[in-house]
Computed example of a mutant assay.
Amino acid sequence: MISNKAKYALRALLAVAARPEGEALTSTEIARTHAIPHKFLEQILLDLKKSGILESRRGKAGGYVMLRPADTISFGEVLRIFDGPLAPLPCLSRNAYRRCEDCENEARCLIRRELARSYEASRQVLESRTIADALRDGQDPAFAAPERRAG
């Protein structure tokens, strides 16, 4: 299960990425439109900025814009930023591998073998699906850019 922080980060990224290129979206607009507590959202946006995904702009037309193209940001990347490793067991993690404390033999561990199957399938989807894919395939009009919304 993903954390609320990761879910809100994905909502915020989808909202910002749906805007025409270079058009900023304020944290207030994101919070109000996507039901995210504003103070919590501000920390999430700061983390996305520190990660090199978003950029903030000051001034009248200020707010947040994409620093990287939406088609280069996978769901897996965002989940790792907010929730850490995707693997259900530390011995399956590619980025944070750690042998299970009570493990007798990884090669013969049936739990590891079975969880590895589901993890690999999930990891492939999360790494291959991007923010741009979700927007392109999505049906939620709340994420549509103004000129794409049904009038």
Rank of each mutant, 00 (worst) to 15 (best):
K50Q: 15
E29A: 12
T28C: 02
E29M: 01
L54T: 06
T33L: 15
G62F: 11
K39W: 11
Y64T: 02
I30E: 00
I53Q: 01
I44M: 13
H34L: 05
V65I: 12
Y64I: 03
H34T: 01
K50G: 12
E42Y: 03
K60Q: 13
I36G: 00
P37T: 08
I36C: 02
A31Q: 08
Q43L: 13
E55Q: 10
E55T: 13
G63R: 05
I36K: 07
F40W: 15
A31I: 02
P37L: 04
K49Q: 15
T33R: 15
G62A: 05
I30K: 00
L46S: 14
V65Q: 02
G59D: 06
G63H: 06
A31Y: 00
L54H: 03
E29F: 08
P37R: 04
G59Y: 11
R58I: 14
F40Q: 13
G52H: 06
R58H: 12
T28I: 11
H38F: 05
I53G: 01
S51V: 10
H38S: 10
I53R: 09
Q43S: 14
M66I: 06
A61T: 13
R32T: 08
L46K: 15
F40D: 15
Y64F: 04
L54D: 06
K39I: 11
R57T: 11
A35G: 12
L54Q: 09
E55F: 09
G52K: 08
I53A: 03
K49G: 12
S51A: 14
A61W: 12
L41T: 03
G59Q: 03
T33Q: 14
L41D: 01
L46P: 09
Y64W: 02
Y64M: 08
K49D: 09
A61Q: 08
R57V: 01
V65S: 06
L41V: 11
A35Q: 07
E55L: 15
M66P: 07
R57F: 02
D47M: 05
R57M: 07
G63M: 01
G52D: 00
R58T: 11
P37F: 00
T33G: 14
R57C: 03
E29N: 06
R58K: 13
F40C: 15
G59I: 14
G62N: 07
K39L: 11
T33Y: 08
L45V: 05
L45D: 01
G52Y: 03
K49F: 11
K49A: 15
H38M: 04
K60L: 11
H38Q: 10
D47R: 10
E29V: 03
K50W: 06
P37C: 12
S56E: 05
E42C: 00
G62M: 05
K50H: 10
K60T: 12
A31H: 02
K39M: 13
Q43E: 11
L46D: 13
D47S: 09
R57S: 04
L41K: 05
K50Y: 14
Y64H: 05
R32A: 07
I44K: 08
I53F: 00
L46T: 15
T28N: 08
A31C: 03
I53L: 01
